[in-house]
Lab assay of single mutants.
Amino acid sequence: QNEKLANELKSLLDELNVNELATGSLNTYYKRTIKISGQKAMYALKSKDFKKMSEAKYQLQKIYNEIDEA
C-alpha cells in the first residue's frame, strides 16, 4: 500500500513544474501554496511515512484543482 501511494505521489510531483508555471498570472497564494505543497511531498516521499504521504498527496491534488479552476 505504501508503494502504491508513493507512486501516486511521485506522479503528482512530476506535474509540479507544469502547475507551478500555470500560477504565473495567478494570485501569490497559489505560487506560495504549490511550492510549499511540493516541498512537503518530497519530504514525505523521503520519510516513507504513510500518513505524511497521504496528507501531501491530498494537498497537491487540492492545489492542482484550485489552479485548474482559477
Rank of each mutant, 00 (worst) to 15 (best):
S54L: 15
S25I: 07
T23E: 04
D49P: 00
V18E: 08
L60D: 01
L5D: 01
G38V: 15
A41P: 00
I36C: 10
I63Q: 00
K48A: 06
K48E: 04
N2L: 15
I63S: 01
A6F: 14
I34F: 04
S37L: 15
Q59T: 05
D14N: 10
Y30L: 10
S47W: 05
N17C: 14
Y64I: 13
Y43M: 15
K62R: 08
N65L: 12
Q1V: 11
L12K: 00
T23K: 07
Y29E: 05
L5M: 06
S25V: 09
M53C: 02
D14L: 11
I67S: 02
K52R: 13
S47P: 00
F50N: 06
L16T: 02
A22N: 08
D68H: 15
S54F: 09
E20T: 15
S37P: 01
S25Y: 10
Q39I: 14
Y64G: 02
K48D: 07
D68I: 15
E66Y: 06
E55I: 11
N17R: 14
L16A: 02
Y64R: 08
Y58K: 13
N2S: 11
M42V: 09
Y43D: 15
R32D: 08
K52S: 08
K51Y: 08
E8R: 03
K40S: 05
I67D: 01
A44Y: 02
Y43I: 15
Q59G: 06
N27Q: 08
K57C: 06
N17S: 13
R32I: 14
E15L: 15
K31D: 03
I34C: 03
A70E: 05
K4Q: 12
S54D: 05
E69S: 11
K57F: 14
E20G: 06
G38D: 01
K46N: 09
Q39N: 06
N65Q: 11
E3C: 10
L26S: 03
K51S: 09
L5V: 05
D49C: 04
E69N: 10
R32N: 10
A6Y: 15
E66H: 05
T33M: 15
E8N: 02
K51T: 10
L26W: 05
A6K: 05
Q61G: 03
K10S: 07
D68T: 14
L45V: 03
G38F: 14
D14T: 09
M53A: 01
I36A: 09
K10H: 05
K4R: 11
D68C: 15
A56S: 04
Q1D: 13
M53T: 01
F50W: 08
K51D: 10
Y58P: 00
E55K: 07
Q61P: 01
E15N: 10
I67F: 03
I63D: 00
Y43C: 13
S37T: 13
N17G: 11
K35F: 11
T33A: 15
A41E: 01
T33Q: 15
T28W: 14
G24Q: 14
S11V: 11
G38A: 14
Q1E: 12
L60C: 01
D68S: 15
I63N: 01
Q39L: 14
E66C: 10
I63C: 02
D14M: 12
I63G: 01
E55G: 03
K57T: 04
E3M: 10
Q61H: 05
L60K: 00
Y64F: 11
T23L: 08
L13W: 03
T23N: 06
I63Y: 02
N19P: 04
K51L: 10
S54Q: 13
K62C: 11
N27V: 05
N2T: 15
A56T: 02
T23H: 07
I67K: 03
K31W: 09
Y30W: 09
I63H: 01
L12G: 00
A70D: 04
F50M: 08
S11F: 09
E55R: 08
K40R: 11
K35D: 05
Y58D: 12
N17F: 14
G38W: 15
N2M: 14
K4E: 09
S54I: 12
K62S: 05
S37V: 15
N19D: 04
K10D: 02
K52G: 04
E20I: 15
K4N: 07
Y30A: 03
I67M: 05
Y30D: 03
S11L: 12
N27K: 08
T28I: 13
M42P: 00
N7C: 12
K31T: 05
E55L: 09
G24D: 12
S25Q: 11
G24W: 07
K4G: 05
K4I: 11
K57V: 14
T33I: 14
A22E: 04
A6S: 06
K62F: 05
E15W: 14
E15C: 14
M42Y: 09
Y64A: 05
Y29M: 05
L9V: 03
T33F: 12
S37E: 13
N2G: 08
L12A: 02
T28K: 11
G24R: 15
L16R: 02
N65M: 13
T28V: 11
L26G: 04
Y43Q: 15
K62G: 04
L16N: 00
L26H: 04
E15S: 11
R32M: 12
T28G: 13
Y58G: 06
L5G: 00
A22R: 15
M42L: 13
E55S: 05
A56C: 02
E69Q: 13
K57Q: 04
R32H: 10
I36S: 06
N65T: 10
L9E: 00
L26K: 04
Y30K: 03
G24T: 13
R32F: 10
Q39A: 11
Q1K: 09
V18P: 05
A41T: 01
S37C: 15
M53N: 02
E20R: 10
Q59D: 07
L9Q: 00
T28D: 15
A56E: 01
L5Q: 01
Q59R: 07
Q59H: 07
Q1T: 10
S37N: 10
Y64W: 06
Y64N: 02
Q39E: 10
E55Y: 08
Q1L: 13
D49M: 03
I36F: 06
L9F: 01
K52A: 11
E3V: 07
S47L: 10
D14H: 09
S25D: 10
L9C: 00
K4Y: 07
K46L: 13
A41I: 02
K62D: 03
L21S: 06
G38Y: 14
L60H: 00
L12P: 00
K10G: 03
L16C: 03
N65C: 12
K10R: 12
M42F: 09
E8F: 05
L13Q: 00
S25N: 11
L12F: 02
E15H: 12
K4C: 07
K10N: 04
K48R: 13
L16P: 00
S11D: 09
L5Y: 03
I36M: 09
K46T: 09
E8G: 03
E15R: 14
S11H: 11
L9H: 00
A41M: 01
N27Y: 05
K10L: 09
G24M: 13
Q61S: 05
M53S: 00
A41R: 00
E15D: 09
L13Y: 03
S37G: 04
I63T: 03
I63A: 03
A70H: 05
L21C: 09
S25H: 12
Q1Y: 09
K48V: 02
N7H: 10
T23I: 07
K51P: 04
S11G: 07
Y30G: 02
A41G: 03
V18N: 11
F50G: 06
N2D: 06
N7W: 10
M42G: 03
L60G: 01
